[in-house]
Amino acid sequence: MNAVIEARNLTKRYGDASAVDGISFSVAGGEIFGLLGPNGAGKTTTILMMLGLTDVTDGEVRVLGLDPAREPLKVKGHVGYLPDSVSFYDNMTAAENLAYTARLMGLDRAEREARIKEELERVQLADVANKPVGTFSRGMRQRLGLAEILMKKAEVAILDEPTSGLDPQATEELLGMIRDLKSHNVTVLLSSHLLDRVQKVCDRVALFQAGKIALIGTVSELARQVLGSGFAVEVEAEGAGLAEKLRVIPGVSSVEATGVNRFRMLADRDVRPEAANVVVGAGGKLRQLSVDEPSLDAIYNRFFQKQNGAGEVRDAA
């Protein structure tokens, strides 16, 4: 699949300070790509550059093969954007707000009405279509923002902090809708400082730190890189010498006893089948077998601890 978004050495400087400092990445079609990092790491600036809403100081970015700095209207015509804590005109109804953006998109009247109706239903806002947005909850506004992207029939959806301020249930709903976008073959780029929340939907992530991409890849790749072995398999079994036997499973880096008949194995992959075989083969009784997926928080923390410890490491990836 072709790269839908491609950034090469993308840089944005305000005076001497760099908001984005020479980042490069590419997002393939149909992918959900996460720009992750703390606030102020340059995620939003990167997004604005992709939309042509702010000037690129150096490097280049291509969205759907178009240069947003040169053809921002075409780019914005194909890219849907859900800004950080999206807002609408509170005095206007949901339908009116969508109608305004539809007019800005240049949709004609019939198309406008049909799409507004369809998308409001899709995001489950049809029954409040004619209520002022001022009465909407945060989650409803986010859904309305998604409806706007859907209405645009965008090929790329850029979501800036889509889950911030949402309760867990609203977050789940929204993440479901993001997956739904992917199923419609929409490339999704989302940014978040809440790494864990988006970890589940992202195919690949880029970890931002101070305007740079510290790490990029799938979560398990990152876990392997940073944590060495990303998977922690908990085994509770009775048997003799299990620790030694488990240690020889290929991919397992360490085994430690965490209690009576409890072992914690660190591996670079999910080694539960092999562990089960070993326990059963050793004549032991397998009581429990579970795996902890690598946490992005852990990766992130570990990575920057390591980096700080190792001094100035430019590119850990």
Binding site: L53, P72, L73, K76, G80, Y81, P83, Y89, T101, L104
Partner: peptide
Amino acid sequence: NRRTLSRVLSQPIY
């Protein structure tokens, strides 16, 4: 202040 500017400007207009 209504934070609507970036959303409106992300539509295909200058």
